[in-house]
Amino acid sequence: MTKTWNNKAWFMVLPVLLLVAFNAVIPLMTVVNYSVQETFGNNLFFFEGVRWYEEVLASSRFHAALGRQFLFTFIILAIEIPLGVAVALAMPRSGPWVSVCLVFMALPLLVPWNVVGAMWNIFALPDIGLLGRSINALGIDYNFTQQPLSAWFTVVLMDVWHWTSLVVLLAYAGLRSIPDAYYQAAKIDGASRLAVFRYIQLPKMSRVLTIAVLLRFIDSFMIYTEPFVLTGGGPGNATTFLSIDLVKAALGEFNLGIAAAMSIIYFLMTLLVCWVFYTAMTNYYDGER
């Protein structure tokens, strides 16, 4: 669609701009202000320059949280994207079961995040939870409140439970936009299942899959509530991801300067990733037109 050049359109965008700016710009400025000062409460601040940034960049604690964060994001992307695509491919293309499947699959997305954590907590407890009990019954020693590996397993499984449906629904929407004629043509040509996937289904899904990867990357990168409720970042610091560490520093230790400097660095990272994805997406999209 060709768009007309009209700067009056700004007036239509203005309410959105004001509301979002109120919520985004003022807090962001405040965080920047905090990040260069030391505070002892009561709105008393002392200028510290870039000291907090230096400390954060040199702190092994930050590096560890960042490393855990990337590992976590990588693991869940590696599981959720292929699994989601597989489930979407196996879904019926039409019929009465589609709605039923979709309703059930969308359900985890609408559970409040701390309820997700609480639910998995009682589901995975080694003595009274179904999951914990079952794993222990298999002869594997499992206790997510004590063993880092079990904790990681539980957090990853929880995230897969919570968010794979988003990938399924996106991929399914992409698949449904493929006209039946494509499949018939493929059948006449005697194309294999793999060829149909590679040359018909995957290209049609590529756009929604980019969105899926982007959303999953971003959301897993800022994950806070679920692992916090499930493990509290423990055992030790084993599941302390960036946001958890941030809140620990800001509210737990009331070290505003460090927390703010971490926030800014964290924000810059998400900003870069968003920009790369967004540019890739819009250019791909424009190229298609």
Partner: peptide
């Protein structure tokens, strides 16, 4: 606008 969809809420908790 989209970057705000992607900003971690933990960053904004205290200023909010």
């Amino acid at each position: 606008l989209l970057t705000n969809r992607m900003a971690p809420p933990a960053i904004f908790a205290l200023p909010f």
